[in-house]
Simulated assay, not measured.
Amino acid sequence: MAKKKRPSAQWAKYEELAHKIVEELMPHAVVTLDDHPYGHETETPRQIDVSAKWTDQGKDYLLIVQVKDLASPADINTVGTFRSVIQDVGAHKGVLICSGGFSKKARTYARNLGIGLYQLHDASSRDWALELTVPLIWVSLNPEFHMSARFTTSVAGQLRMHREKGLTFSEDGGRSRTTMREYFSGLWNSGNLDRTPGAHEKQARKGLDIPYVDNRGVEVWGKLDLEFTYEVKRQSWLGQYRPSDCRGLLDFIESDLFIPSYVNLSDMPTTRDETWIEVENPEEVALKTVGMLITTEQYRVVDSSGHVIIQRFERVN
């Protein structure tokens, strides 16, 4: 029974999508839509939906792709016909793409012949969007730090405290003010501190200005030496997410492996739920994962993070 084909206009768009994905996956090659390489056995040009040609160490390579936009799985006859084309044009690799997938026998036959079987995925397309999710490792680097402050000039009066943020001080003689939390967060978020998991450091800042209210009720400034230690702790979770904009190939030979040619990383999740699994060693997970794995690292400190611990204050009068 003949395979049911989709309308020719839609078929052409499917071929164009295949061409685009192959271009993205093989930037080193010359990728051509509707190519006609010469058939050495038939002694005539053969029509190829997509070809990729490149040179490696002085040797020329040819990959050919035939695209079938069918409503049902392609069978062993489709694979057999394509095999003869591969041999005729002397291609080093042949790839069949079918929107309807492939039968079990076709998969077995293609695997034995070394022919790739794929289905296209385009998340932005109504016709060729598959139900795919991408594994994502979420790494959170949490700095826990302790601060101690030593007043190096006499402070006779009441320290100037921010109602919500606590003690404030200045690095520029009072032109601007910051809190303990904001000061450390700024150093950490700008990358001026070591973020290596397990890192444990001590740092000191001397001669800072600190405001206080003297016995007359007037704000004056004293001097402050600041010392802090911090330790970087890492937590990691493994989850799945469905990108709203991605495209690539679904491999029917390698256990439905998804090979992305493009993923929009701007829509990665910003929150986790109960489906995420905490993992102790994200590097080990990455080594065991076949195909695509996205890793995102969360390292910014915000005021509400709760990682800042003020340890002690010491007055020198």
Rank of each mutant, 00 (worst) to 15 (best):
T168K: 03
G174D: 01
E231I: 09
V220R: 12
G157T: 07
A149E: 09
T179M: 10
G222E: 01
S190P: 00
F145T: 13
G217A: 06
F184G: 00
G217L: 13
L224G: 02
D225W: 11
H162G: 14
K165R: 15
P197G: 05
E171T: 14
E231F: 09
W237F: 15
K165Y: 04
M161I: 13
R195M: 09
G217R: 08
F228Y: 15
L187P: 11
L167V: 04
Y212R: 13
G198N: 01
L208E: 15
S148A: 08
G174L: 05
G222K: 10
W188L: 05
G173R: 08
Y183H: 15
R177H: 13
Q158K: 14
D214G: 07
F151P: 00
G198W: 10
Q158R: 14
R160Y: 09
T196G: 02
T152E: 10
Y230K: 05
L226R: 05
Y212Q: 12
W237L: 15
K223H: 02
R163S: 10
Q203W: 03
G222P: 02
V232I: 15
T152K: 10
L167H: 06
Y230D: 07
R163W: 04
D209H: 07
L159T: 07
S148N: 09
A199V: 02
M161F: 02
L226S: 07
A199F: 05
R150Y: 06
L208K: 11
R216C: 03
H146K: 13
V155H: 13
R205N: 03
P211F: 04
Y230C: 08
